[in-house]
Structures are given as C-alpha cells and as structure tokens.
Amino acid sequence: MPEIPELAATVEAVLAVAGEPVTLEALLAVVGEGVERARLEEAVEFVRRRHDQEGSGILIEHVAGGWRMATRPQHEGALREYLGYRSRARLSQAALETLAIVAYRQPITLPEVNYLRGVNSAAVVRTLLERKLVVVAGRKQVVGTPLLYRTSKEFLIHFGLPDLSALPSPEEVEEVAGEGPSEP
C-alpha cells in the first residue's frame, strides 16, 4: 500500500502530462489496485498544499469536475511577456450577460435569452459557441424546435468553477441586486 507522499507524487506526474482537469475516477484507475478514494483525495490535497506552501509558480486547482495543474495568476505579466500575448480578450458585457443567463437557466433557447436581455443575442451566442464557452444541448420540443444551449466544461475552467453548483447562488445574486419586484 503506497504512502500518501508517494501517491501524491504519482498524482502530480499524471496532472503534469494531462493539461486538462483529471477526475478522481481517472486518477483511481491509474494508481493501481487497493487505493481507497479517501486516501487518493488526501494525496491530491497533499500535492495541492505542497505547491501552495512552497511558493511554487504552479498550483493544483479543482475545476470542471477534476484536478488540473495550472500557472499561478500572479505570473500573468511574465507569461504574457514570454508568450508574446497582448492580453487575453476580456469577455464583453453582452457576452457576460448572455453567459450568466445560460449558466443560471440552462438549458435555454435563444428566444428566451433575447427576452431576458431585451436585445437580440444571436451574434453573442454564436461567438460564445466559437469560444466553446457554451454548447448546444439538443432542441426544445416546442414550435420551431429551437436549439437549447448550456455552458461547457470550458466555461467551468474559464471561471475556475469545480461544477455549476459553485456559481454564486441566486440568493447571493438577489442580495446584490437589491430592490426586487415588491408590491408598491
């Protein structure tokens, strides 16, 4: 039975070559027989803490249902310099609003998005599809069978969310939004 530090080193090696979130199930499959889930979770936590404590430029993050090795945000300037980026294009207000609607109401059709935003959002949705932040999730069985959209794995990675339940809760959003439709 491998010790936690040894297991942790294996996990680290796998994450290093994966380049994308690796689920606990996938990790379980590679560490060999007889390793319990809880021990593996402990091992993942071990690598994560080690990277945090050693002041490493790399972190282990829990996103999109798995674990992923990524660079730390404080080195953005250095990375940009080295890679020769200008700056990664931020999402526009229209894109953020549309993403927010899709994220909280998925699966949702374009007409429904248009209704909530009060403007036609076809072009925005198309761009979000191109950036793989939303994906098509079938068709709604209503007149015209419009396409349904939902957020993608890429969406979770982009915003650093382990899963959709990690989105700010509607109650939290409500609190910030303030005055609701209370009766006059």
Binding site: L91, Q93, L96, L99, A100, A103, Y104, F159, E172, A177
Partner: peptide, 11 residues
C-alpha cells in the same frame, strides 16, 4: 434583468 447584470458582474 438586474439579476442578470449582477450575475454577469460576478462572472
């Protein structure tokens, strides 16, 4: 719509 804007800001 206000909730959408707040959620967008959160994102």
């Amino acid at each position: 719509y206000e909730r959408v804007k707040v959620a967008a800001a959160e994102l």
